[in-house]
Amino acid sequence: MTLILLALLLWAAGWTLNATLANGPARQSRAVHLAVPLIFGITLIAMWELITRGADVPTVILPPPSDIAVTFGNNLPMLWADFVQTILKGALSGYIIGNGAAFLTALLIDRSDYLRRGLLPLGNFMAALPIVGTAPILVMWFGFGWQSKAAVVVLMVYFPMLVNTVAGLSETTGMQRDLMKTYAASWSQTLTALRLPAALPFIFNGLKITTTLALVGAIVAEFFGSPTQGLGFRISTSIGQLDLALVWAAIVTAALAGTAFYGLVSLLEKRATFWHASQRKH
């Protein structure tokens, strides 16, 4: 009981601290912008710990974060193997193939108005469909290895990326294209000098959206069959053994991988599109 009271007190203290920081004199500073969400996150985790221990929540329902951290630390080699299997082999290879194929298709479509008008509505439609549903079919075709996961990821990332790239390629204004025409620029010169740079913000938007989709595809596909490693496999088998701490450790791994993956693409975007309005400092 005291632990639960302590949790409530901690919540009040954390919130008050954040309120004073956020409304205080230093509210525009970088440090405060970093500190406030951190304090909020730490408060939540501390409350989770105190409440699960205070109310004796069975670990098969919700293990305390300290247990999860210990499990994570103890199983690092296994989780690393899962990471390699799911993220590097399944998600990353599918991500590269899918986005590459979508990019090439977009270039192809771009040359033909007929194809653009035919494929674009279809692409928009497909981008809204629950494509994860193809996972059982693809697992049946490509086996339990990483290839089937990569195939699911390819299908999941292809259409959002296609739609974004096509939108990006039509981003230039008539004036700019006319200028290229007066320079007697060929199609490929116009593409590399004008249209691809103009499309970059859209392409990166597609790349960022598809990072999460790639991980979701790779993990869900493992629920339908996988070798004896991989994050999706770990999650589904550990649930069967009611080892919730390990499930959470696998989820933490997936979350860290997802955030790092997204961060990496955003970093690339910052480097590549520093000139774009959305990247400039105000």
């Binding site: 999460t212 979701v216 993990i219 997936a254 997204y262």
Partner: peptide
Amino acid sequence: QTIPIVAL
């Protein structure tokens, strides 16, 4: 948004 929530 960057976390594969479906894993949960």
